[in-house]
């Protein structure tokens, strides 16, 4: 899996490409946690636009980041879920914890709108 991680303000945008399984999640988890240790990052947005596969290991990695980020008062968001990824999200009830948006911009607008208000 290829990953591009960038900071937009207080939000870490994790852009993934490929298949998010146990093998991929193990490396990605460490990469994200290293960035989260930097103080100014508060929220994490997972962009699934180019992810065509996710299993329960990917799910566990997302849920783990959700718990860690929430403890520090931040938010985890997701955007651009393809049908196979959405299916696993819904089966595990992840959509009731993590807001899902159609595009990255919609997710960022929601975060920034929330900060203004």
């Amino acid at each position: 899996m290829q990953v591009r991680i960038r900071a937009k303000g207080e939000t870490l945008v994790v852009q993934m490409r490929g298949e998010l399984d146990h093998h991929a999640a193990t490396g990605l988890r460490m990469e994200i946690d290293a960035k989260l240790a930097e103080n100014k990052i508060k929220n994490v947005l997972f962009n699934f636009r180019d992810v065509d596969f996710m299993d329960s290991s990917g799910f566990g990695m997302i849920l783990g980041r959700y718990k860690a980020v929430r403890e520090k008062g931040g938010k985890v968001l997701a955007c651009s879920l393809r049908p196979p990824v959405r299916r696993v999200f819904e089966l595990g009830g992840l959509t009731s914890r993590i807001p899902v948006f159609g595009t990255e911009q919609e997710a960022l607008d929601d975060l920034w709108g929330g900060e203004d208000g």
């Binding site: 988890r29 299993d55 329960s56 290991s57 799910f59 566990g60 696993v88 089966l91």
Partner: peptide, 14 residues
């Protein structure tokens, strides 16, 4: 501790 979600068998069943 390994952030296993406990979803594996559930996914296989479903």
């Amino acid at each position: 501790e390994l952030e296993r979600s406990g979803m594996g068998f559930t996914i296989m069943e479903n």
